[in-house]
Simulated assay, not measured.
Amino acid sequence: MELEKAYQKITALCARREYCCSDIRAKLLKWELEAGEVEQLMQQLIQQDFINEGRYAGVYVRDKARFNKWGPTKIIWNLRQKGLSEEVIKDALATLEEDVFGSQLEQGLRQKLRLLRQDDPYKRKQALLRFGASRGFAFEEIAAVLDRLKAEGLL
């Protein structure tokens, strides 16, 4: 693909939604551009603010926390996979409200508890622990919510 055509196509993509550098670099390499051309386009896109990793991380964190109900561990892991720096990730997580993750964890565990068909309390607790961990929450946070559920007589 020609460099100018690739630039027009990639700017149209970036204008529609946020991308990180690794996503754009992978697209450009898939279009069989040379490494030098890819780096040239990347620098141009960053300078023109089509790509902004801080902005991307902020949108990613808000979307995954709000819509996917992911915890901080899973979000951090996925952002690291995309090659974002620890500072960018930390700043993005700081933009969320204080107790977003805690309320989502409790709501998710309550909903999961209603769906469980286990009679054995040990197996129910293990299922809830696995569920919380798979959503990206720390063991301590999950255990605290489970203690509250037990105190309410639900577990």
Rank of each mutant, 00 (worst) to 15 (best):
K112P: 03
F131K: 00
S103Q: 10
L149A: 02
E86M: 11
I142F: 08
E4P: 04
I24N: 01
L109R: 04
K9E: 09
K74S: 14
G71T: 15
D119W: 04
R17E: 10
F139Q: 15
L115D: 07
L33R: 00
R55E: 01
A57E: 03
Y56G: 10
Q48S: 07
A151L: 01
I10A: 15
Q43K: 13
W77I: 14
R124M: 01
R110G: 06
F137N: 02
T11F: 04
A57I: 08
I10W: 02
I75E: 01
A65I: 05
M42W: 01
I46Y: 11
L149Q: 01
E140R: 08
R135S: 05
F50L: 04
D120K: 05
R135W: 00
I51R: 04
M42H: 03
L93M: 10
W77N: 11
R16P: 06
A57C: 01
S22R: 12
C20M: 08
I51Y: 05
Q118H: 05
A15V: 09
L155V: 03
T11H: 03
F137R: 01
E140I: 14
K112A: 05
T11C: 11
R110I: 07
E106G: 12
W31N: 04
F67I: 10
G102C: 08
Y60N: 14
A133C: 12
K64A: 09
R148P: 03
F139D: 13
K5H: 06
L93S: 07
E87T: 05
Y19H: 15
I24L: 13
A15Y: 05
C20H: 00
Y7W: 14
E37T: 08
R25L: 00
Q8S: 13
I75A: 06
R117M: 09
R25M: 00
P72A: 05
L146V: 01
T11K: 04
W70H: 08
W77D: 13
G153M: 04
K27F: 14
Q8E: 13
K90H: 01
Q8H: 12
Y19C: 00
E141N: 15
I142S: 11
L41W: 15
G83V: 00
D63K: 13
M42V: 07
D119E: 14
